[in-house]
Amino acid sequence: MASTGLSSSNSSSSSYDLSFKILLIGDSGVGKSSLLVTFISNSVEDLSPTIGVDFKIKLLTVGGKKLKLTIWDTAGQERFRTLTSSYYRGAQGIVLVYDVTRRETFTDLSDIWAKEVELYSTNQDCVKMLVGNKVDKESERVVSKEEGMTLAEELGSLFLECSARTRENVEQCFEELALKIMEVPSLLEEGSAVGKRNILKQKQVHHTSGGGCCS
C-alpha cells in the first residue's frame, strides 16, 4: 500500500493493476442497469429505462490483482441499437442479460444479441457471460436453469443466475468474468497495456451525415 505513492487524488483513476472494458447488453427491462447499480453501490433502487448508454466504474480486487472495470450499460430497446453498437469496440467482457420470467428476453439473446456481438465486437477473444436475472421471482420463472446452461454452452460463454434485487450472485457475475478475462493472454495484455486509457476513448464511428461548416 505504502508503495503506491503515485496514487492520484482522483477517485476513479487511483492505482490499479489492470483495466478492462465491460459491456452490458440484452432486452429492455431485464435489469441490466439494476445489476450494475447493485454491483457498484450496494443499493437497490427503481430505475428509469436507460436511454442511449450509461457509464460506471468499479474498482475491485480479483485474484490478487487490483482491477478497474469500466462498464458501459446500454439501452435495450431496438431503436437505440445504431447508437449502442459502437460501444462494442474494444470490450474485453460482454455480459448478456435476460429475465428468467420473460421467455422472449431469453430467445432474443440467441436471435439478436449474440449476432450483435459477432457483428460489432472487435475482440476475437472477448469473454462472454450469460446472466439470467430476477431469480428472486422464482414463482414467475419460465426459463429454467438448464436452458440457460445449454445456451451458454452454445454461445461459448460463462453462465450465472442472479438477482439484482436480493444481490444474489451479482458480484460473482462480474468477478468470474474478470477472472476469465485475466486467463486470456491477449486480453490480459490489453488490460495492462500502456495505452489502457485509450480503451475508453473510443472514437465514435457513427457520425451522422449532415456535415457541418467545418467537417
Binding site: 428509469s48 436511454i51 442511449g52 448508454v53 457509464f55 447508437l83 485509450n198 475508453l200 476513448k201 473510443q202 472514437k203 465514435q204
Partner: peptide
C-alpha cells in the same frame, strides 16, 4: 479527453432534459 457529445447529450435530446 476523447469525450463524444453523444455519450451524454443523446439522452438530453431524447428526453428533452426531463431526466
Amino acid at each position: 479527453q476523447g469525450l463524444e457529445f453523444l455519450q451524454f447529450a443523446f439522452r438530453w435530446v431524447n428526453c428533452l432534459l426531463i431526466r
